[in-house]
């Protein structure tokens, strides 16, 4: 068990609980916040658990680019773009 994995898991748990809690709250920028939390979790899994931090920059750009594209289109589709 590595320290990095333990810290990543802890952060992922906190982000999941925050996403669950804020989803029922009526706060401004709720949808962008939820999407941001999801992106942070996906980056935690890919870069830490899947070790993509060790990969060629091509793969890192591809992952981050995918997330930006997905969130961007989602916000446009919801009329927030």
């Amino acid at each position: 068990m590595t320290k990095r994995n333990i810290i990543t898991w802890g952060v992922l748990m906190i982000l999941t609980v925050i996403a669950g809690l804020v989803s029922s709250a009526s706060i401004p920028f709720l949808i962008p916040i939820i999407l941001l939390l999801a992106c942070l979790k996906i980056m935690g899994v890919t870069f830490s658990f899947m070790e993509m931090r060790k990969a060629n920059p091509f793969w890192k750009v591809l992952i981050v680019g995918y997330l930006i594209l997905f969130c961007g289109i989602t916000l446009i589709a919801l009329g927030m773009g």
Partner: peptide, 21 residues
């Protein structure tokens, strides 16, 4: 049910944590 969805997220992420280990 958001609670079930949240618990499911916790379960999958914990499973992924053990996979990395």
């Amino acid at each position: 049910n958001v609670t079930i969805g949240t618990i499911n997220t916790v379960l999958l992420l914990t499973s992924g944590f053990f996979m990395a280990n």
